[in-house]
Every structure is written in C-alpha cells, then in structure tokens.
Amino acid sequence: MRPMTIAGLAVLGLLIVLPFGLKGYGIYILSLWIVYSIAAMGLNLTLGYAGQVSLAQAAFLGIGAYTTALLMKAGYPFFVGFGLSAGICFGVGLILGYPALRVQHHFLAFVTLGFNALVWLVFRNEEWLTGGTYGLMGFSRPSFFGVSTNNPVVFYFFSLALFLLLAFVLWWIVRSPWGRAFQALRENPIRANSLGVDVRRMTLLAFAIGSAYGGMAGSLFAPLVEFIDPQSFMLDTSLMLLLMVIVGGSGHFFGPILGALLVILLPEWLRFTEGLYLIIYASLVIVLLAVCPSGLLGLYERTAAAVRARSSDRRESAGGSAP
C-alpha cells in the first residue's frame, strides 16, 4: 500500500472513533468541517483542476441550503432537496459560467463576485420566500429507515457517509479520461487545446460540477445548523472557502479537506489570545502563503522530494565512500 492510502485509512478510522470522545461542540465542529470540505472539494475542481477562480461558492452553498430547507418545510424528504440543490446549482453554474468563460481568463472571478453579492440581496429581500433577515428555521433533521439524525453523532455519521460518497465520485471524475484531460489542461492549456481538448467546455463543466458540490454542501448545512440566514452566505464565506482550498493546496485531492480543517480549527487553538486571535490567524495565513504559495500539501510534497533527494544523495555518497 502507498503511504497515502495508509494515512487515508488511519484518518478514516480516527473519524469513526473521534465523535465518541467529544462533547456537543466538538461533534458540531467536526460536522461543520465535513460540510465545508464538500464545498471546498467542489471549489478545488474549479480552481485546482480547471484553473478558474470562483468567488460564488457561498452563494451555491446558500442556494442549496435554502432549497433543502424550503422543501423540507413543505414536507418533502431530505434527498429530494439534496438532489434538487445539486441540479439547480449545476444549472446556475452553466448559465453563469458560459458567458463569463467566453471572455478573459480572470473574469469568472469578477462575475462570480457580483453574483454572490446579488444572491445575498435576494436572500435578504425576498422575505416571502426566504424569511428575509430573520432567516428560516423549523425544519427537522432527516431520518432514514426509522433512525432520526436528531442525535448529533448520528447526523455526523450521516454527513460522513455522504462526504465519502461525494469524495469518491470526485476522485473517479478526476481519474477518468475526462478528468485526465483536466490535468492536461492545467499543465499546458495551449497544448491541450491543440490536442483537441475543448478547453472552454471542459472548464465550464468543471465550474458547474464544482458549483453542484457547493449546493450539496449547503443541503447538509441547513439541517446541521437547523437555521439559515443570509449572513452565512456572504462574500466572506466564499473567500473563506477559497482560503481553505489554497491553504490546503489547490489541485491536490486532499488539499481542500486539510485546508478546511485548518481554517476551522486554527481559531480554536488561538482562542486563548482573546481579541488578538483574528490578527494572529490572518498573519499566519500571510506567512504560510509567503513561505509556501502552493499550500500545505505543496509544502509536504516539496519537503518529501527534498528528503528523498537528500537520502538518495547520502546513499550515493555512502556507497561512494565504501571501500
């Protein structure tokens, strides 16, 4: 087994055991991490594989959350909301991305920035639908086969299962011939283009799938928090998700998952500094980006490569000095 696989299994084991040793807050934070990880994974497909910056992932999170909450309030089962959230976000992603990707490279970022702010306004102003500033509540957590997910631990495992499923799907997408085209695209867009890869179509699909992941994450977000309001889906949240992808290492499969963990846990560890924690947190982000712009997994790869190179050096020199 490759070391990555072993590490993955170890982490999975830990994720199964962990909630039994945690209190309510710990379980909540773990569940929140899973939800944000799904959204960040989607953004990673857009950013890390297709090279497009989207600043609207929070808007998709919101669309998913409101869709699911409204449907559940109307009495539909969770998975209807979940499926519809994915579908709507995929569609909106296509509609938004198609014209934006026609124009220049970095313009998807600007269009999505405007889109996120507009969606927020709609959430706040259309009170008849979204509850406006006061938000929506009063939708229960889903239950399956008679098991209610009202218990935080049960809901955690439910989220974990969905997360693993979605991660597997994404992994499959990235490995498929279609996904390999992505990698070609990332490494050399001009060559990929000349080899017959339709760059614009590929990029558009990546953005739409990434958006759908945002919608599905939102679909889980609503029953987790049991309350949604426009404030949770502002541009700030989009930037936070972007931070997760970049800190973890964009383009690495596990990057956004690690990034989400760090972005959620770091404020926890710094809480003892009272009012200073955001200052220290933001400073650490700046330092990390200065030292390692390719994120934590980029740093790991670089270090690992350096260690390998050094140890092979040593072996050679050891071999050389042997009589």
């Binding site: 209190k23 309510g24 807050y25 710990g26 909540y28 934070i29 929140l32 938000g135 928090v225 309350f227 309001d229 404030q231 949770s232």
Partner: peptide
C-alpha cells in the same frame, strides 16, 4: 463573529 451559525457553535462550547 457576528454570525448566527457561529454563535450557535460558541453557545454549544460554553455549555460544554
């Protein structure tokens, strides 16, 4: 952080 969802997490922590 003036965020409803985060306030919920913090009340949970204060209770824990």
């Amino acid at each position: 952080q003036t965020n409803a969802q985060n306030s919920r997490a913090m009340v949970q922590k204060a209770l824990d």
